[in-house]
Design a protein around this nucleic acid. Sequence first.
DNA 1: CACGTCACTGTTTTT
DNA 2: CAGTGACGTG
Length: 774
Amino acid sequence: MNENLLNQLNDGQRKAVEYCDGPQLVIAGAGSGKTRVLTYKIAYLLERGMAPWNILALTFTNKAAREMKERIGRLVGPERAQRLQMGTFHSVFARILRAEADAIGFNANFTIYDQADSRSLVKSIIKEMQLDDKTYKPSSVADRISMAKNHLLLPQQYAVSSWAVDDAQQKRPLVAQIYSRYAERCRQANAMDFDDLLVQTYILLLHHDEVRQKYIDRFQYVLVDEYQDTNYAQQEIVLLLTRDHGRVCVVGDDAQSIYSFRGANIDNILNFQKMYERAQLFKLEQNYRSTQFIVQAANSLIRKNERQIHKNVFSENEQGERLTLKPAYSDKEEAIIVCNDIKRIRRKEGCEYSDFAILYRTNAQSRSFEEQMRKDGIPYRIYGGLSFYQRKEIKDVIAYFRVVANPSDEEALRRIINYPARGIGDTTVGKIVDTANLHNVSLWQVICQPMVFDLKLAKATLTKLEAFKDLIQQWGERIEDEDAYELGHSIIMESGISRDIYGSTNPEDLSRQENLEEFLGGMQDFVLSRKEEDREDETGLRDFLQEVALLTDLDSDNDAEQPKVVLMTIHAAKGLEFPTVFVVGLEENIFPSPMCTGSMRELEEERRLLYVAITRAERHCILTCAQNRFRYGRMEYDTPSRFIKDFDPSLLRIEGGNNAIHSTTTTSGNAFGPRQPAFARPRATTQNPRPVATQFMADPKPRLVPVRHEAPRPQSAAGDIGLKEGNVIEHQRFGIGTVVRLEGSGENAKATVDFKNAGTKQLLLKFAKYTIVR
DNA sequence: CACGTCACTGTTTTT
DNA sequence: CAGTGACGTG
């Protein structure tokens, strides 16, 4: 088996996999099989007898973790892969922090504040301190606090650091005080923001020797993916965990470090060998993804950067064609050019829409492409932007859940205390906040005991407050006994949210209704799949919240859908690859970003960003820029990006001309059928209707009666006995798959199924919903 | 206290 | 051109 594993690797990859004797830095050029090395290395460790729960693998996105787990499952079997400690820094640490919450003075039910929550809290604090919100812009103050945390600077240290000196020079000396209040408020709210998940983990491990030792013993081997994008806090935590035994492997590419705005420090990877004295360096330089011209063009670009680890990335694929730059008159024409190219290449090469990606610097650029693709009937999917969970109606529901799970959660409480309107307005909330601050307690404590804290309100308002308190408490009592779907459904019905959203016949509310239904369907899926995976004790509302708090748009893929052109920012495209890539908007005021001051460090990062974009392409890489662009509601003139001159001119073909103009006449109906409303919907998650959706639609008026709590009937119950190894089944969510193993019988019958698109899953047949295909 | 209207302002990238 | 905040009215 070991032999087999290693035979599937090239020399460099094999050496990197086999070396397990000490700290290891793997510099992996773009497309050189970085993920392959990580997965094989983990499989190799498992084959050599290491227990899966002793291996910690930290990734950058949930998606990367999931995919890696799947691939490892194929190598060593899904049971072992399932037990690996694998996930993003944030999700792994959130779990540890819940287990150890007591040690750092938090409650295990703490809420995770997202960026919007953080900003909103900072904003309230600035307001309470009666500061001018022009000098103290909430978002930049929040960013600064975040940055401080990424450097492990606590409020007390911050106040006496050079950071505070800088603040004073910027005429905003009170940031330190805001930071300090912010930290207090988070603690009162029993909440942690994204950065706290790192900071608190660090504090936990640093100050509690027995806890640290426990995790050092547990994580006998630590692997970190995308190491070039780790920040100081992450580096220090990994160091705490691995300094003693040195069994650490970090993988990354300094040329793809693009997250400095989030605190990522390229020095982490550049200086790894200084942090770990015995560290060995491995380089992967053969690119398997792209044609030679693409690799060479990317090399010629990145060569212009000074700070980097030298490497010689090469490809032995076909030479391919040169990069093409297609200048356009306007953003509108740019979109037309791209759409025409998609149609042309698709026809010529007979490929799918999903073989194309349009990558841009900022989310706002998606607009013109969206419009054009809708006109042309090209199916597309936009990633990023505002994700599903950031929609107002969804955030409202989640806010209710958060308050039920953790009533101290200030941000969630403020969001829902008067939604739907129940007569508790701004004035009342203001008084509650003041009282809470005065006594250093949470808003919830004040609401529960208004007399104790001497809350001065009219009798009628106090009554309303108490009714609200009772409402929340009554759900809270059910949290241990009911699953997320049952309780969530009740909350939506009884809170008045459904009355609000279904009450009006206003057509604009239709999409809110659909979103709510989709959300409920998602909750039902969550409960069902956990049951199928035999994790029935992890189906509660808190488990659901933990899951959604760290989800991103990229995580909600629906593989089974029809192929679509992908639109996303370059940042979001990291780690992905496509046969044809369009890198659009290569103009001075976009790329490099005008926010970038022009310092060498920042400019080099922008250049790396373009490098990342180019290296996503397998066969075709087409660049565009527009002379005029609609911005701020005005037409603005722009010159081509300075980065265009960085390419070796012999590798870049410039295709002038305005021939695309003629295609403006492209009509809406075409060979791919008439304009379909489905395309008009950027969110492609419109799925087959679920039972829950019909429950809602059948009865547009809100029902305040309790819903039926029956578990959805497994349609397959009768067919269970008939299932054999080798059967092909169609699962409700995972699609088509082959049964590779059956275990247990009756209640506990389990099947291991290798799904075509969804990977290998273990299904508890009692709950699984599927039909046998053959 | 809720709701509507009006003016303003400011736009990178995200776990 | 949004999305937000301030202000006035019912």
